[in-house]
Design a protein around this nucleic acid. Structure first.
Lengths: 222, 222
DNA sequence: TCCCGTTCAGTGATGATGTCACCAAGCGGG
DNA sequence: CCCGCTTGGTGACATCATCACTGAACGGGA
């Protein structure tokens, strides 16, 4: 009964039956513990991952040791950059980290190649996923270049709060989310706290007035 | 004798003969005049372009009307983002503009699909090109987030000077290259001029001491 | 339990960059 | 030659980055 994970990927639902059979037979469901570096400089992945549960954070690490979060791969999405990473032999400076325990379908490179070759639907699935990521990157570029940090911080807080009303992250980690400096985050969060939108404690942030943050976040463009 | 453009694309040289035949027979060499918008919001391209001559500038246009140059496609490269653009039906906010007159091989979407399906080499070619572009985007993000503008401007000047020692661009256009404001470019260029590295005139910049710019550009990271 | 080293957060000073408002110079078309 | 548009220059100020330093919070031995 391992086959039914396909239902979690709308783009694969209409897969040709023969292809579908190959996909389910030649791939494996794996689990990866939280914190694992899935790919990174000098660590090419051997598989394309389709996430069933959990979350992968993809971030850029610069030579100066600074980090910036590029995007996250959520359950139901695929980690397509690994495919480009598989084929191009330049080293990526980006790395993917399991942000939670992850359960995923692992498609070995030869099988991936086979599927791309044989199935129009699978090709669509892959190229659509690419498109999605590239759009994400465009958005990151636009935000960093043109958006005020207070607005971006408010947006990020809303984005990272997953129903819990709380975010477990240090100021340093929030700075990496935005590609800015820790001090900037500290000061902005201080301001948010003065306005009664959040409450801070070491290593976590409680959101107590989401609507205030949302008003700021909505200012968006200039 | 139209077939020999393949020699300009190292990644296609070892193409399987049958595939090579399909590629040359079903694609067309087209020319596009300078200034043409090749793809953009609301304008999906019908073809994948492989550039034989000329240059395409790909830039992001934000809602606030601001622009930022993402990368350039040069002769011998392919404009792969158009493939993602072809398949994914979200509108891109990026646009591609012919920066010079362009001569290119146009591969219609069905032929592209066919080639991806049939040829390992062609798949490699495409995914490698993707990888290259994504790496470019990572670099743009890192530069915008962490690099000083004077250094980036010096690098860009060196990059855009193509043997002529001169760059035809307004300060506004240079600002778009870096994702910064015109005033910042004006002031930095003023400083470069005071140092004797460049001479400015309306709409163009003469580089008269490349080594000075290179020293600054080499400071790179922090 | 108490040290004690480490991580995390707060803050002032200062430099770099972005924004706004405005002016002047250059260029081209009537 | 005049006029309007584009381009570039500049001061004032806001925002953001960096540096240097402080103290608080936490956790792991002794």
């Amino acid at each position: 009964m391992p086959a039914d994970w396909i239902a979690q990927f709308p783009g694969l639902l209409r897969l040709e039956p023969a292809v579908r059979e190959v996909l389910t037979r030649k791939s494996a469901v794996i689990t990866v513990p939280e914190g694992t570096v899935i790919f990174g400089p000098g660590k090419s992945p051997e598989n394309l991952l389709l996430l069933l549960e959990g979350r992968v954070r993809v971030q850029q690490v610069s030579e100066g040791g600074r980090e910036i979060v590029l995007y996250r791969v959520e359950a139901g999405q695929s980690c397509v950059l690994t495919t480009a990473c598989l084929l191009a032999h330049e080293d990526y400076s980006a790395e993917g980290i399991a942000e939670t325990d992850v359960r995923a379908v692992a498609i070995p490179r030869p099988v991936f190649d086979d599927l791309v070759s044989q199935s129009v639907m699978f090709r669509n699935f892959i190229f659509t996923a690419y498109s999605r990521r590239i759009t994400d990157l465009f958005q990151v570029i636009e935000d960093i270049a043109f958006q005020r940090v207070d607005i971006r911080l408010a947006q990020k807080l809303i984005d990272l709060e997953r129903g819990t009303g709380q975010i477990k992250a240090t100021h340093q980690q929030m700075a990496a989310e935005l590609g800015t400096a820790r001090e900037v985050v500290s000061r902005q969060l201080g301001e948010f706290q003065r306005r009664g939108w959040i409450r801070q404690s070491r290593g976590s942030i409680d959101l107590i007035d989401l609507s205030g943050l949302e008003r700021l976040a909505a200012l968006d463009v200039g």
